[in-house]
Amino acid sequence: MTGSTVLQARGLSMLYGGERALVRAVDEVDLNVPAGQSLAVMGPSGCGKSTLLYLLGGLQRPTDGEVWLADRRIDTMSERALARLRRDSLGFVFQSFHLMDELTAVENVELAALLAGQSPGRARKRAMYLLDRVGLADRARHLPSALSGGQRQRVAIARALSNEPLVVLADEPTGNLDSAATLDVLRLFEELRTAGQTLVVVTHDPRIAAVADRVIAMRDGAFVDDVASAATGTLYDGRR
């Protein structure tokens, strides 16, 4: 289900601080994400996962290297062009959901489309479709405060899908969730994976590997392992 490269990084670096206390949050990372791939980047706290994701999503500018989305170089784009690109081509999911508290679930999902100038009727229709897709059609008129953590995250995922993004970028999407809610979110990611949605998740949670085609291990800003998720079953390990 994978095709041409959608997201690419070359020699991507992000340094913080001065000469005294230099932190190489991302250290010359090369990455190719083919269309349809579901990629998990895993590593311990502080290894640079969030920074990497922000660089890939044009939320932050690298100190060195390049980021390409489809065939457009984004790290040198103007702020305005970047904002438009994020709105039109990327979907973001964060650990703490980032929903607007005073808007209902469906209003949160349709907001981006409305801001992009879509007609209210069409935006609502699409938002309802997406909420149905994440299993929350019956919660559409609830405020986030009336939803569980897992439900809020599913609303956030519906919102991330509202612009039919080239790539969904997620930062610790299960970080604030208990086991049952994590399962709901994992199921949803698994559906996205099988539907061919290109997906990059950075996380500390190894369970995300269950819904990834590929798992990259990150340490100290660099990739140390890159494993295509094999199809072979290893459930039964034969130990007694």
Partner: peptide, 8 residues
């Protein structure tokens, strides 16, 4: 990790 993925 492979086992965890399969079990999950």
């Amino acid at each position: 990790l492979r086992r965890l993925r399969d079990a999950q």
